[in-house]
Design a protein around this nucleic acid. Structure first.
Lengths: 358, 358
DNA sequence: CTGTTAGCGCTTTCAA
DNA sequence: TTGAAAGCGCTAACAG
C-alpha cells in the first residue's frame, strides 16, 4: 500500500491506470483487469487487495481503452425526430433507464424530421462505434440510413416505425385509428375529420390515416375529410377557421396528441364546447393529456415500454451475436383512453348545424 | 487505387483503419491522420488522394482510438432529473443541438431526483471520460457529486441550479416569483398561495418560495400560504380538496408548470372557473402551456438557451484549458407570459367567499 | 490462480 | 511535405 505520489489525493487522477493499481496492490496489470472483468478468476484475497487499491486511488477503468481493445463500446445510439414531443421524451426515458441498468451509455441525436440530419446522425454514431442504434425515422421504407447501418454491421431497431422489412417495435396505428372511427360512429358521429401533419413526411401518419379512411368507408361514410396541417405552428389557426364554418365536423381524430391539443385550443377559439359540440381524439397518450380538462381522449401507446423493448431486443441480439431482424418485430398493444374530450355529437348536428360565434 | 479485397464493398467495414486507407492511397498512416486532423499540413494532391481513398473505403476514423490517444472524448455528460418534465426535454434539445454543431456527442443520464442515481451517473460519466458535464441537481449546496467532478478534474456547469459557489446558468427564480406576487397583488389578490413540491428536495423550489414569501410580507400579506404537495400524482386531489373549502385562495402561484396544470385540473374538478374565480400562475414556460385554454400564465425560462449556454461555456473553457468557475455564472432573463389563467379576483372574494359546489 | 506479451487504431514528436 | 516509431490504457491468449 505504498503511495507513489506526494500530491494530495485529489490530483491523483491524472495518469491513473491499471498499472498504477497493479503496482499499488503488488500484482500484475492483467490481474487488475481480471478483478474488474472476471472477478471469479481471481483469488479472493488478491481480489480484495486489488479492489482496495483501486478504491484508494479512485481508479476508474478507461472506457476508450476498453472499447478499443474489445471493439464494444457499451453504448447505444438513439436517433429521434425531436424531444419537444413528449412521446419521444417518454420513450427516451425508457431507453435511458434500461440502458443504464445494463451498464450501457446512450448517445441521443435529434433529427427534427430532416433527412440530412438523419444521415449525419448515423455517420456520427458509426464513428463513435456504438454497439447498436435505436431510431425513429420519417419513413422506414425509403431510408438510406438503414442501409448504411446494415453496411456498417451495426444492429438497429426501429421505434414507432412499422415496416414489414425492418426490425420494429411499434403499435398498430392503422387498427387503432379504425377502432376510434368505429367508436365515434357508435356514438353517433357522421362527420369525422382526421387532423394530420404532412402525410408524405411520415409513414406513421400515413398508416394512421389509412386506418381512418378504411374505417370510414366501412361505415358507409365516404367523404372522409382530411385536414392536413403542414406546420404545427399554423395548425391552431387553420383548425379554428375550419371549425368556424357551418360544415364543420362533429369529431376530430388527430394523428398525435400535440395536434389534439391544438384542436382543443382551436375549438375554444371557435367558441365550441368540448365534448358537447365537438369531440376530439388524440393519438400517443402523452402523460400530460391526462392532466387536462377535459382530459384528452386518445390512443395510448406504451412509449416507455417501446423504448425499453428496443433496448432489450438490441442487447439480447448483441449477446447472441446476431442482429435484430424483421421477423421478430414487436407489435405492442395500444389502449384507448376514453378521456373527457369525446361524446355523442350534438343532436341536431346531422341535419342543421348551428353557426358558431367566437 | 488497387482493391485489397474481393468481397463486396459492403463487407469492407471490418478491420477498417487508417492503415488500410494509407496503403490504398499509397501514403503513410501519419499522412492519413493529418489529412483528417490538419489538412493544411498535407500537399493538396496528396490530400485529395487520401480523401478519395477514405471515401472509397467508407473509412470513418475510430473515436475510441482517437480518444485514447488524445485524452479527449469529444463528448459531454448530461445529468437531468427527468425528461418527463418538458422543461428538461427542451433544455436537452438545446444541449443536443449545440453539441452536435460542435461535433460533440452527449451522454444523458436521468436521476429521478435521487441522490444515489446522481452519484452513479457521475461515476459512469467519469468512467467514460467525458470532457465535461452539464447537470441539474437537487441542491447545489449539498451535492457530493460536484466535489467528485472537481476531484476528477472534469469541468462542469450547473443548469437551472443557482448557487454562489458554483458555475451556474440559471434564472433568478426568487425575483421572478416576487414579481409575480406584486402583479397578483396589483390585480387585487390578497389570498395568494404557493403550490410547490417538497421544498427540502429542491433548492430551486426553496428559492422560488423565498421570493414568494418575501414579496407577500412586503405587500403586507403575512399569512402566505404554502401548499406543499410531495407527490405529483396526489397533487390534483390535494389541491381539489383545498379549493373546495371556502377559505380557498384567489390565486395560486405554482412552482412549476406541471403543478400549474394540475392546479388547473383541480380548479375544474372543484367547479371553479379560471381565471374568473381562481387565478393560476406557473413557472418554467413549457411550450405546451401556450396551447392550452386558458393559456397558462407563467414565468418563462429560456430552457433551450440555458442548455445552449451550458454547452458554449463548457466548450469555451475546454478550448481555453480552464474550468468554468462560479464567478462567470450566467443569470439569464426570464419573461412573464400573461396568458389567460390569471385575472382580477372575484369582486366579493375579499369579504364573503362563495361556497363552490363541484 | 497469475504474469507476460502483443496489439486494438490513432496521434504526435522527431527525422528525413 | 512526409514517414517511422512510440505509446494512450486495456484485454485476451498463452504460459507458467
Amino acid at each position: 500500500m505504498q503511495g507513489h505520489y506526494t500530491r494530495p489525493i485529489e490530483n491523483d487522477f491524472i495518469g491513473m491506470s491499471i498499472h498504477r493499481v497493479a503496482s499499488h496492490a503488488g500484482v500484475s496489470p492483467a490481474t487488475v483487469s481480471r478483478a474488474f472483468n472476471a472477478p471469479h478468476l481471481v483469488a479472493s484475497a488478491t481480489l480484495a487487495r486489488v479492489l482496495e487499491s483501486a478504491d484508494a486511488l479512485s481508479f476508474v477503468p478507461n472506457a476508450s481503452a476498453r472499447t478499443l481493445r474489445t471493439q464494444r463500446s457499451r453504448s447505444l445510439g438513439v436517433v429521434l425526430p425531436t424531444l419537444l414531443n413528449p412521446v419521444f421524451a417518454e420513450c427516451l426515458e425508457g431507453i435511458a433507464e434500461r440502458a443504464r441498468a445494463a451498464g450501457h451509455a446512450i448517445v441521443p441525436l435529434v433529427t427534427e424530421y430532416r433527412t440530412a440530419l438523419e444521415r449525419e446522425a448515423i455517420e456520427h454514431l458509426m464513428a463513435r462505434s456504438v454497439d447498436g442504434v435505436i431510431l425513429t425515422v420519417a419513413s422506414a421504407g425509403r431510408c438510406a440510413s438503414l442501409g448504411r447501418l446494415r453496411q456498417g454491421r451495426v444492429p438497429y431497431v426501429l421505434a414507432y416505425n412499422r415496416h414489414r422489412g425492418q426490425p420494429c417495435v411499434s403499435v398498430d396505428g392503422e387498427a387503432a385509428c379504425a377502432e376510434i372511427v368505429r367508436w365515434l360512429v357508435g356514438l353517433g358521429h357522421r362527420r369525422i375529420a382526421m387532423v394530420s401533419g404532412t402525410l408524405s413526411a411520415s409513414d406513421r401518419a400515413r398508416q394512421r390515416h389509412r386506418g381512418f379512411a378504411r374505417a370510414m368507408v366501412a361505415a358507409g361514410l365516404a367523404q372522409a375529410e382530411l385536414l392536413e396541417v403542414p406546420f404545427m405552428q399554423a395548425a391552431t389557426q387553420a383548425l379554428t377557421e375550419r371549425l368556424r364554418r357551418a360544415s364543420r365536423p362533429t369529431a376530430l381524430l388527430c394523428s398525435n396528441d400535440l395536434l389534439a391539443l391544438r384542436s382543443l385550443r382551436a375549438a375554444a377559439l371557435a367558441g365550441l364546447q368540448v365534448p358537447q359540440q365537438l369531440s376530439v381524439v388524440g393519438f400517443d397518450g402523452i402523460a400530460l393529456g391526462e392532466e387536462l380538462s377535459p382530459q384528452l381522449s386518445t390512443v395510448v401507446q406504451p412509449s416507455r415500454e417501446i423504448g425499453e423493448r428496443c433496448v432489450d431486443w438490441l442487447l439480447e441480439s448483441l449477446a447472441a451475436g446476431t442482429a435484430p431482424g424483421p421477423e421478430s418485430s414487436l407489435s405492442l398493444p395500444y389502449r384507448i383512453r376514453a378521456g373527457e374530450s369525446c361524446a355523442a355529437p350534438p343532436a341536431r348536428s346531422s341535419s342543421t348545424p348551428t353557426r358558431s360565434t367566437a
